[in-house]
Design a protein around this nucleic acid. Structure first.
Lengths: 229, 229
DNA sequence: CGCGGGCTTGATATGAGTCAATTGTCGTGG
DNA sequence: CCACGACAATTGACTCATATCAAGCCCGCG
């Protein structure tokens, strides 16, 4: 756990620091605390815990989950540069469990401090609104009722865009999560996901090697998704 | 179209004015514009339109929609006292169509003005965060993958809570939308919804008369939904 | 009074889930 | 370094929930 400097962070332009000047970065930095070495499957918080902190993924990946009749349901994934915890603002408690998918590290800021800081720094306030807006858009799109194959392609394209934002390849990347979590998130059986993945490979749309994906033709995929959204 | 006074609004405690003092209400009021007589099926905005304005439902009801291979998909409902348009902040364009379900009226405020005002009024800023947070929670919960009957009961309970917030009966209310829209929103065929509604009536869980619903026993319903969420 | 949209009901089709067995993969310890 | 065990992914056979297709009904409106 250590106080941190956002200036040197490669993810700054996705995160709170976006569009802040040197002085403002300095101010913000005072409020940020870093947590390293969050272990796989460790819960950062659980549904019902008192809300205080917002988080940004620094490295690794997280999934948010809820319990459904003894089963876990994955409600979202969070990758480096992405923030989470906003669901807790309204009711003062977190409404999901937040679990590390791999060894991870995060930056945290207390909501109260963020309020104070964003009162002083207009562009920070703007950025918080923007990030929350983005989460709303993501959540709405996750609701779309489509056949399994389309859902899966959508999911891949969404990941692709998120990797692109980080200046990584949008066509070749490693899935941060196991098939099970993908299936669960999309509301499918993992057998279904498995079958579709082999089908998509047979069709030449994607290439797969364990968690390594290659999207062979973004154009083809986008064609399949046309008129969606 | 007219400038408006939030002080006398019965919905103030659900909306932006929540927790503002007289002076602050005065300030906020300057920025609010009212639109009456929005006709059934009229679009307040469409996906892709430039984002500027946030809205609060004053009377009536709205649905947000997206297009999916020639079909419309309903992505949300907005009832009196509820705000919408936040999805447009991030990308500067609205990401859904917003359509009046019945003759309606709204209050609108430009996002720029809201930013300015909330810079001056901390509790206003807090309230905007809270409302956006609430939308996130709603959207996440709408994603849960459950059998049709549970989805439908969830939907009724959600409506129940929203009516309760407005100090209306949580057990007897009128559905603001036709069955078709409910089915579409939940990702079901309207035949399925229709069948389930008659089943729920036969089971004595609800009573229905056209759009008039009575939830016979909230306890029973909550029991069926236990372990969910 | 008749027309039409929304709703209900029935018969059938199908996409995806479940169950079950097999294979593949990785980490650990002998 | 290899063998084992545990878990993740795949594949196949079968089932089931819900969609689709097809009438018919009910009520409000012109």
């Amino acid at each position: 756990m250590s106080s941190i400097n956002c200036k040197n962070c490669a993810l700054a332009n996705l995160c709170l620091p976006f569009s802040l000047n040197e002085n403002e970065l300095e101010t913000l930095g005072q409020y940020i605390i870093r947590h390293n070495h969050i272990k796989r499957e460790e819960a950062l918080y659980r549904k019902g815990d008192t809300f205080n902190l917002l988080y940004a993924v620094r490295s690794g990946a997280f999934k948010s989950t809820l319990h459904q009749h003894e089963r876990e349901q994955v409600t979202g994934f969070y990758l480096p540069g992405e923030m989470f915890g906003f669901d807790g603002i309204h009711g003062k408690v977190y409404t999901t469990n937040m679990i590390a998918i791999t060894e991870s590290s995060v930056c945290e800021i207390s909501f109260d401090n963020l309020l104070t800081a964003s009162q002083k720094i207009p562009s920070l306030q703007q950025q918080v609104y923007s990030i929350m807006s983005q989460e709303i858009v993501t959540d709405i799109r996750a609701n779309l009722h489509q056949p399994a194959e389309i859902k899966l392609l959508h999911f891949f394209m969404q990941l692709s865009e998120r990797f692109k934002r980080r200046k990584l390849s949008p066509t070749q990347f490693e899935l941060p999560m196991p098939r099970q979590d993908i299936a669960n998130y999309l509301g499918l059986a993992n057998e279904t996901v498995s079958r579709l993945l082999t089908k998509l490979q047979d069709d030449g749309v994607i290439k797969l090697n364990k968690r390594e994906v290659e999207l062979v033709s973004l154009e083809e995929i986008n064609k399949a998704l046309a008129f969606v959204g």
